[in-house]
Amino acid sequence: MINRLLIILLLSLMMTACSSGLEIVKPYEKEAFSKDKMLFNPMPFKMEYEEHILSIREASQGGGVSFQGGCGCK
């Protein structure tokens, strides 16, 4: 488990280092991202509820964006 975490951490660090070689998007060029439709999660309340429902209906978890509290339905 610790090995996996280390690999992920190293990959993240490598990507972070490599990302400095990418095109730098200036703050004034990020206007498009001020809109809800350009967010990774444009509907946060809906996603939170949907993740909760789907964690009851499907075996998979994680990879989401919101904290899910405990529930006896799961």
Binding site: I8, L9, S12, M15, T16, S19, L22, E23, V25, E29, K30, E31, A32, F40, G62
Partner: peptide
């Protein structure tokens, strides 16, 4: 959870 986000272009 770990995540990394990167702007690729404007």
């Amino acid at each position: 959870d770990l995540s990394i986000s990167q702007f690729l272009s404007p």
